[in-house]
Each structure stands twice: as C-alpha cells, then as structure tokens.
Design a protein around this nucleic acid. Structure first.
Lengths: 344, 344
DNA sequence: TTGTAGGCGTTATCAC
DNA sequence: GTGATAACGCCTACAA
C-alpha cells in the first residue's frame, strides 16, 4: 500500500513511477506495465485512463528496473576496432537501423585492434547484461571465448568466416578475396605484384588477405618476395612513403595490391604526383570499394564488400537467436566482388 | 537468509551473484560490493578472500541491478545524424576513449538528420536512464527540449555554438567558418563564387555555413545569386552532376566553395576528368579537412575542424557536469582554421 | 573495517 | 481482463 507517503528509508528519485500512474488511473501497477508492453491484453477504456495518467505525470518508464526484472536489456553490444573506418561504421549503421525497429539499442565500444581491450569490453558489456554481442573478426582471447560461452548469449562475428565460431558469423572470406584479386592481376599479365597491408597484428582480416595473396602467387608459380610486402598504419601518408620506398627497393614491380582502399588511394595519388602512369607503369588494386574509388582517375580496381548486407545479416542473425530460433547455417558467407576499373 | 535453497517464486537467473560470492568468502554481500567499487575501504585480507570467491564462482557483477540501486547507469547516450560521416565518428571515437577511462560506456543512435527521430531516441535513452546526453547541432524539437529539461541530466550539444543551449556546448561557429572561407576567396580575387551544401533541412551546421557565405558576399558588395547555390545529398556522384549543371548554368563561375570536403572532392575529381584546370579555371574549397584533402592534386583548400579536441572537450564537459561541477563557460568555442592549399 | 535492513521500479507468476 | 505478491541483484543509509 504505498500511497504518497514517502517510506522511511526512502531513496526516492523524484520521478513519477508506475505506482503513481497506476494510482491516478485507478489500476494496479502491473496493469500499467501491461498497457505499455502488451496493449492488446488490456481493455481499451483502461488503456485510455492509463494514457491520461501517463501524460498527467510525465511518466517515463524506467527501463533499468524493467531490465532487472525481466532479465532482458534490449541492448546489443558492438565491439569494433575503431569508429574511424568506413566499413565498420557502414555495417553498424545498417545493423542499428534494423535493430531499432525491434526495440534494441546499440552499446558501442572500440577495441583499437587489441584483443585485450576487446576482452575488457566484453566483460564490461556482459556486466551490463547486453542481450547479444557483435564482434569484429574471429581472433579473440581465450578469456573472451570463455566469458561468452559461459554467458550463453547470441554472438555474431562479423566480416570474417571463422573456423571455430563462438556462435554465429556473417561475412566473407578475406583469404579468398585476397586470392581472387591477386589471381586476377596475374591473369591480366602482371608478374611482379607487391602487397601493402595495414597492420596485421590482431587483425585477422588483413592477415587473411595477405595469405590469399601468397596462395595466389604460389599457385601461379611465382616466388614470394618479402621485399614486395609492406605493412603500415592505415594512412594515406604512410602508403605514399611506402610506395616510394618500394619503387626504389624493387624497381621491377608492375602491380600493387593493397589490403585497403585507403592505402591504394594513397599510392594512386602519389603516382599521379610523381608522374608514374597507372596502370601502364604500375597497376594498383585496392580493397573495400570506398565511394571515392570509382571517382579517382584512373578509377580504382578493387574488391567490393557487401557492407550493408552484412549489417543487415548480422542484425537478422542476432534477432533470430534472440527470439530463440536455432539458426542454420550459423555461418553466412555474403561473398565479395572483384570490381575491375582502370587502375589495373 | 538465502542459502542455496531456491526460493519458492523463483525467477532465478542461474548466475552467481554477490550473495554467492559473499557466502564463499565468509563476508556480507555489501563487503563484496565495496571490494569491487571502493577497494581501499576493505581490508587487504578480506579483498583477497573475495577475489578468490569471485574467481571460483565466475561472478560477473550485474550492472543493471547496480544501476537501479544507485540510480546511475554510467551510460552516455550519443545521438548523431549518421555513423557514416567522418567528423561525427572521429569526435565520438575520441569522446569514447576519454569516457571509458572513467567507467562510462556509449549508447549510440543515429537520427538520420531527423529531429523527430532524434526526439524518439532522446525519449528512449532517457528511459534507459543514461547519465548524460550528447547531441549533434542545436536544432531540436520542442519536446526534446522539454524532456531534457525535465530530466535534468548533463547535455552537450556538439559541433555548433547554440544561441540557446540546452545545457552545455562544444564546437565552433559554422556561420563564421562559412564567412571566413568565402571572404578568403574574395580576398584572393574570386568574384563569382558558387556554394554547394549538403541538405540543409534539419542540418543547422550546413545552414549556418551557407549563411556565412551569404554574409561574406553581402559585405563584399557581391550580389547573391541563387543559381550559384545548390543543395544535394552528401555524395561524390551528386557533386559531380551538380558541378556540370552549374558550369552550364553559370559559365562565369570562378570559384566553388563546398560545405563538405566530400562534395569538394567530387567536384575536384570531375574537373580533372573534364580537363578543367583547378584553380585557374575554377577554384575549389571544401570543409572538414578530410585526410585525403591534402593528397589530391591540386591539394584541396579547406576548413579544418578540431574534431579530436571537440570529442575530448565534450567528454570533459560531461564528466565535469557528472561530478557535479558547475562548468563555466558552458559554451566552448574551439574554433576552426582556414587551410590554404593549391585548389584555390 | 564490516554488517543490517530495506528499497530502487519494474515484471513474472499465479490467482481470480 | 485485472490484481496481489514477490523477486530481479545490487547499493544507500545507518549502525556498530
């Protein structure tokens, strides 16, 4: 019987609560809850009275209390390497849109490509009782895996096709993409193909693209030359410097494949400045198909990733699991596409 | 006295809770809580026993329960127009890093440049009892303002200097930036200056940049010609099409100022394709100073926004308010910088 | 330095 | 269609 009398050990928040609304509407608190969550289980007349009471009090439901009681937060936690980076944000944007439609919100953390930071974020997000988790890539710490296994919530690993998925995955094969692009270059007559990747440490996507590059060389009977490979931060400036170093080190290079369009653009723009003709003197291929790729001159040959589809797929995957469906297959390969343009 | 005996109306979650840890460690639940939150208030020996118990049980604190009890979620809600868009994500990334260091996490929602969607997100995030709120721009619905005023939580409006701030703001004057860049062009001899903006509806930043452009023209005694202004989605392709239309419509145009580097790059790259010499035939200036701006040829003259500083400033502002400090000034102007390069 | 008592605001459960 | 009751798991307030 809690009437307006403030209880003695009160830690009152001042806001209107279900009880206040219920009292004014002349119903029990649970009925207010039902009117908001499952309106069709409540009589129209009752609902109307409740609605008025809600407006009168300026009541805003406390989802924290609701979460504690229902043991569901309607929160999806997403851990990405960095918020800079168009692929991750594009996927997130799409996923967020789908999830919003189902009442979920996004808790976002960036790991800075560190699996230890990722682990810390996983622990934190589990403590917040996120209903599901989105991870980038397939490389995770042992404790991350243990925590997630123990938590038993839906997990989707994105932009990769894990050998040993934690739960589900939506992505494409980076190895295969690296292989295909390199093979394409070889098929088009390039013989001395260099590879620029962003830092591969703790970045399995880049590591796999590089592996694909090596496999293609190998299968074509080309020798793998470490001097033809460079690793650098994802930065136009770095790409430019590495290009100049590469040309000096390996004057015979006739093609450059970059694990990211950012690096490819850096190289392309530097060639333009240096008067190096692309693709005649040096062919260039990228990865990601950024908007700008088709607008530079020469337009950049690259690998297109279905980012929107991945975001959508990841959302659907998690939603299915959250509704208790057993999804199959648990690993969805959305593929990629070689986009031939003028730069190679 | 809750021992392992499952209570009768049980809605047990199966996980270990403070009580389990406390029982094993031979202390009261509150001591476990203290050991985690304020370790220095607990004796070392006690802490060690608790630590062991935590490891034995695999205990993960339930922050939802904690939030309900303490009435603080340690959650900052950020509403941005879109996750695509380098400025917003750069600011967020920086802010997120600072806030993490203080135990806060980020709840992210994108409004798609709609103040109604923004309003819905504000309501949702208030229901989740976010401790503070980050908004982009200064244009909000009446209900948004009412909700926030009523909620009384710290709010920071970013990338703008609001006339009527909700609470605090960190940004720069878009009007002034538009004015300065236009004036700079005028000072450098350009007479017929066009302006491309992204969609201005519900985007006060773009609206203000345009206003600054008009003020500069006016002060210089130039006539404002609506045919010299175009509004378009933020897309390279659109910029390109609008450039061609502009050149046809107004052959005398000698400079183009774009409210976004994306648009400026589209125009610049199209000029390159069309053989239009930049800046001789047409000068081009942008806004944002994207990484790529200084790498294209000719390098893009643009306005640099201190994104990192804004992210940092917004975080500090919110933290100060969360710690109950009364901040002053409540509006922080971090300025901008005209970056002259070769394109104008 | 540690403990007791009870509330935070909602929803699950079961009853009518 | 509606309600009584208790529980979700922690933390505040106060006491020792």
């Amino acid at each position: 019987m809690s009437f307006a009398t403030t209880p003695k050990g009160s830690r009152h928040t001042g806001r209107a609560g279900v009880r206040d609304v219920a009292r004014i509407a002349g119903v029990a608190p649970i009925t207010v809850s039902r009117a908001l969550r499952t309106p069709n289980l409540v009589a129209k007349a009752t609902r109307d009275r409740i609605q008025l009471a809600i407006e009168a009090t300026g009541y805003i439901p406390n989802l924290v209390a609701g979460s504690l009681s229902s043991n569901r937060t309607q929160l999806i936690a997403a851990i990405i390497p960095t918020l800079r980076g168009s692929m991750a944000t594009q996927i997130l944007e799409e996923m967020s849109a789908v999830l919003h439609g189902h009442g979920y919100h996004l808790l976002v953390g960036s790991s800075g490509f560190s699996i230890h930071e990722e682990e810390a974020l996983v622990a934190a997000f589990l403590a917040r009782r996120a209903d599901a988790l989105y991870l980038t890539g397939q490389t995770h710490s042992t404790r991350t895996r243990k925590l997630l296994k123990h938590a038993g919530i839906p997990v989707v690993e994105v932009a990769t096709l894990p050998r040993r998925p934690i739960d589900t995955a939506v992505g494409f094969s980076n190895e295969s993409a690296g292989y295909k692009m390199t093979s394409w270059l070889i098929a088009h007559g390039y013989r001395r193909i260099a590879f620029f990747s962003t830092e591969t440490k703790h970045n399995d996507r880049q590591t796999e693209r590089l592996a694909g590059y090596r496999r293609a060389l190998h299968e074509a009977g080309h020798r793998y030359n470490p001097a033809m490979v460079a690793e650098m931060p994802i930065d136009l400036e770095c790409s430019k410097e590495n290009l100049l170093a590469l040309l000096q080190r390996e004057p015979g290079v006739d093609a450059l494949f970059c694990g990211s369009d950012v690096l490819a653009l850096g190289a392309l723009l530097e060639c333009e400045r240096q008067g190096i003709r692309v693709p005649d003197q040096l062919a260039i291929a990228g990865f990601d198909d950024l908007d700008i790729a088709k607008h530079v001159t020469p337009a950049l040959t690259t690998v297109r990733i279905p980012s929107r589809e991945i975001g959508h797929g990841a959302a659907e995957m998690l939603l299915a699991r959250l509704m208790g469906r057993r999804v199959s297959p648990r690993i969805v390969d959305l593929g990629f596409e070689i986009v031939p343009r003028q730069s190679a």
